[in-house]
Amino acid sequence: MLLRSDITLEVRRPVFASRISAGFPSPADDFIEGSLDLNKHLVAHPAATFFLRVVGESMLGAGIHPGDLLVVDRSLTPTVNDIVIAVLHGELTVKRLLRDPDDKHLWILHAENPSYSDAKMPPDSEIWGVVSHCIRGFRA
């Protein structure tokens, strides 16, 4: 392990404390009250958080596009309606987790794109992690 993952990098932006009021700005605006750390916002559990890159189009309807960066938190317990990473046929795939309408004890992996079909979750398959955020850049 030469370089630790970029999770530990902190990017700080100042937050200004006082509210806008009529008249002149408060001198306290010069005082930096705290800072926002995007990593802390996006990565609640660093040990359990992994980044994955989207290549497929099966989740376009959920606003997940090819090239997007998914923040996956494995410490979260998957629940109905979560967008999850699942293991299907030996591959990692991103889908929405829904109850099987035919059998409430089973789950289906729902694609948010009409050209893709849903898949029943085989009993021996597993949920790899829960997608907590999706990050898209607008300029290369």
């Binding site: 980044f51 994955l52 989207v54 990692l92």
Partner: peptide, 12 residues
């Protein structure tokens, strides 16, 4: 290097 390189991230 799935967890330490941006260009090596696992894909879904």
């Amino acid at each position: 290097r799935y967890t330490t390189r941006w260009e090596d991230l696992p894909t879904v």
